[in-house]
Design a protein around this nucleic acid. Structure first.
Lengths: 353, 353
DNA sequence: ATCATATATGTGAACGCTCACAATATCATT
DNA sequence: AATGATATTGTGAGCGTTCACATATATGAT
């Protein structure tokens, strides 16, 4: 089909120089006279020569490729991160290898193993469920790695995290400020790192308001619409006194919304609901959801920047970026339909040393 | 950091055989005695040896990697396809290189070029906007390519397409059966291949019902919520006689829903709305949207199967799979909230020779 | 014992590049 | 005119595999 590939030797021969000189031109290295450089470049243009990244990788031990591990790319939360990752990776001439784990912890290790075999220069890993020790053992093989939304206890691996304690706090505080005193938490998966953080924020807000936290008011569930709906059903059946719900994410919140619709509870009059992540869906359901906005695309971009810093051993490497979530108030907690941003401060990363 | 890589020679030495024998074991080739095979495998296990895919690629000219080009991975339509692609690619030990084009036609060529340089074994390209000639010129470099949702005039490149004429027909027919006679079409981008197909189906249904198609009842727009909302606003301002809308996709349909809400038109009583694609969102808005279901994950899986067939020159290669959409009726066109599948036939691909 | 045949193993080369170093050319200094 | 520094070019080797072929050993029929 396609004729034989043009090699560096072909170019060298045609330009009447050694292959090494051609290599110098390609890589913009010094010690090439202007005239030869031009001649070589002409030949390259004429022949349409493209250096083989594979041959290059074989000797440089770099692939200009990074791995992106997500639980499920069709989940809007992760696809937004992926967008950010792809965007800046591409702009820096890196390619992105995509891997789904399907929310399966053991698949995480499997996938990392596969990426390792592929010699990626680094990995960005999101939404991990597997244990610290096993993950660390798997991640140590990589030249560089960045975690998204998780921190290891010993903080060995750089990470970009959302300040979920703050998020949980803001969400709960808002509900308390709206006059609610019985606030439930539909808490997502028990294994979720961020879920645990949000729970802390939730508790903090309650404590601060002088309210006792009721163990029973926290209900775990899968992070899906159906999960949220069932959890809400269960929780409200056992505790009809609850008048407000803080939800693990927007999908869960939509589930809560549906359960309320099903049993005839009006939102926000009979039940106030706050979601998390602020995915597009939050603005489109009715009533639109109050939600904690998380800048996902930016998180993806920043993760790549961190990673490339590590890969290239730049001086300004940092090992943690904390992203500040922002509560966006909509009709699911207030009588009005207009979105109001309670915290108007810019979402700037806090760089740690 | 990590100690020197284990090579095939190391294994050979330790097992007391030649590197070629080790290679045979790795690749499950014949002509290795059972005893040596075992010995080699033991050494491989002990040393944790992994063959270098790069060195292998250099000689085999295969990378076990496929490229996936999408306009925007954060668009739920494409992320679902990506999911399907990744799933079966991974199961066949292929990796997926992800590329966004950002709905930018010239980026499509750029990205394909980049993938070509990376020596991917094949590409799957979705939602192309660029002209036939340019794309064909770019795609000819690949060992294999599969298009999703587009066909070239000369049918040179295998493709997986939705029967959008049928989809448009089913959607429109449904609206006509519900008693509407003034059915508008919010048609999406003018450059969309599938948009053109759906328009044909729309016209076909009208013609069949003996209705004259009104040029003015078709309004193009960007394939977004806002695009749909504005287009609806414009269309209904000019043609208040319209009582039903067929929309290019679900996002556009949600836009239509919003415009109706804004101007106080009740759905479905004053305005019936049909979307397309049946993304999750369609079930979550209120009223839930009647929509044309497109099996996106399956399309992704099948695209990979087609591609791998081409790459490996399997005998049963085919160059077109037509996927049948299915109308899912929900409350946006009927008085009831229960979803009803009008066409219950299984969604099976029609294989063309 | 002899030869053909099948099985088992080994050797040189190549894939297309970059690295480390060697060789030559250029030019100002002494 | 010889010296040394600096710019420019070239050479050999190697990255870690697989391919094509050569060789050795075992099996079975004559």
């Amino acid at each position: 089909m396609s004729r034989r590939r043009v090699t560096i030797d072909d170019v060298a021969k045609l330009a009447g120089v050694s292959y090494q000189t051609v290599s110098r031109v390609i890589n913009n290295k010094p010690y090439v006279s202007e005239t030869t450089r031009q001649r070589v470049q002409e030949v390259i243009a004429e022949t349409g020569y493209r250096p083989s990244p594979i041959a290059r990788s074989l000797v440089t031990a770099r692939t200009a490729t990074i791995g992106l591990v997500v639980p499920d790319i069709s989940n809007p939360y992760f696809s937004a991160i992926a967008r950010g990752v792809e965007q800046v990776a591409y702009s820096k001439n890196y390619n992105v290898l995509l891997c789904n784990t399907g929310e399966d912890a053991s698949r995480e290790l499997e996938v990392l193993h596969a990426l390792d075999e592929r010699y990626v220069d680094g990995v960005i890993v999101c939404g991990l469920r597997e244990e610290d020790a096993l993950l660390q053992e798997a991640l140590v093989h990589f030249r560089a790695a960045v975690l998204v939304n998780r921190r290891f206890a010993d903080e060995t691996i750089p990470a970009i995290v959302v300040d979920d304690v703050l998020g949980g706090y803001l969400a709960t505080q808002h509900l308390l400020q709206m006059g609610h005193t019985a606030v439930g938490f539909i808490a997502g998966p028990t294994t979720s790192y961020s879920g645990a953080k949000r729970l802390q924020g939730y508790e903090k807000a309650l404590t601060e308001a002088g309210l006792e936290r009721q163990i029973d008011w926290v209900q775990h569930c899968p992070p899906t619409v159906v999960g949220g709906q069932l959890a809400t059903q269960t929780l409200l059946a056992n505790h009809p006194e609850i008048t407000a719900l803080f939800c693990y994410n927007d999908l869960v919140a939509v589930g809560a919304l549906r359960d309320c619709a099903a049993v005839g509870r009006r939102v926000p009059q009979d039940m106030a609901i706050v979601g998390y992540d602020d995915i597009m869906l939050a603005t489109l359901v009715s009533p639109p959801l109050t939600s904690c906005h998380v800048p996902r695309v930016e998180m993806g971009s920043q993760a790549v920047s961190m990673l490339l810093n590590c890969i290239n051993n730049e001086t300004d490497r940092c090992d943690e970026i904390v992203v500040t979530p922002e509560l966006v108030v909509r009709a699911s907690t207030m009588g009005v339909d207009t979105a109001v941003s309670v915290k108007q401060t810019a979402v700037l990363p806090n760089r740690a040393h």
